[in-house]
Amino acid sequence: MRELTYAQAGVEAVAEEMRNDQRIFYMSTDPAVSLMKEFGNKRVRATPIAEGALTGIAIGAAGSGYRPIMDWRQVTFSFVAMDQIVNQAAKIHYMFGGQRTFPVLYRANVGGGTRLAAQHCQCPYSMFMNLSGLKMFLPSTPGDLKGLLKTAIRDNNPVISFESNRLLTTKGPVPDGDYAIPLGVADIKRTGSDVTVVAVAWLVHEALAAAEELAKDGISVEVVDPRTLVPLDHAAIRASVQKTGRLVVADEAGPTAGFSAEVAAVVTEDPATFARLKAPVKRVCALNVPIPYSPVLEDHVFPDRKRIIAGVREVLQGRLSDKAV
């Protein structure tokens, strides 16, 4: 299989879909040069810096028969478009009684590791998850990003593609040919029997590294990557926890009302899964502060493989003392 970077996989997904469907057009304050070259300035628009207006323009064009992609670039810049996201895009299909479809894809980079400080290192996806009416995903690999983007571009609803800043230059296998990954389907990135780690984006890779480390101590970790945030694959998460009886959730966002809180609720409110829990759920998240600039500070705030390892050991405490590890 070919190896592409996460960023390349994103561009490839967009380009392939744009070749197949003339109704797709792309708006961004600074679109990828390769897309501008291939599709010209009508289908790939370098826009004024007016994210609020453009987010709404995408909705209007979608309701008029087009399939726009609006790239906010950093999620940071989507906040000036909050009215259009929250009050318009999320509600327009439902509120008007399903009269029209609004196939819009919004793209937004999230996460830290870039030393860009508080405004440009954010993981606010749970704010969007909280809105009814939007679908969204946050992939951890180039292959997943491409497949999910292709599905999202073909979806007839507003979808947000959250893309990890830390992963943009990481390489991974991308299948040849046309493939798409359905929304709402988790991927088990590593199978295991002692603990389930549910992680997204960069923390999937940290969880895999943690699992490798823990395996040396005879601890078997299952890594579940939901990939899609809405709709969230409840069944896959519950099935894994029913098997292992222990759950750690790893997320680059803070814990408060976050993705990790949602996963904890999905597990604990289900009687069958709750009955199998052998330990309290553990969340490994960012600290609840705006992301600071200095590397020493930033690295302290974000979770990593070390904290995942500590979290796993914590939920395994009872078992470990049995075995006297």
């Binding site: 057009f25 009508k42 609020g52 207006a53 453009l54 987010t55 709404g56 323009i57 995408a58 909705i59 209007g60 064009a61 979608a62 309701g63 008029s64 028969g65 087009y66 726009p68 009215d83 259009q84 009050n87 318009q88 327009i92 008007f96 009269q99 029209r100």
Partner: peptide
Amino acid sequence: FGIGMLGANGIVAGGISIVTGAGLAAQMD
């Protein structure tokens, strides 16, 4: 939507960009 009435809107100025998108679509058509 069938008659080209894209909606009243409860947000002051909320419709201006949506209909500008319809204008963009009209131009592309």
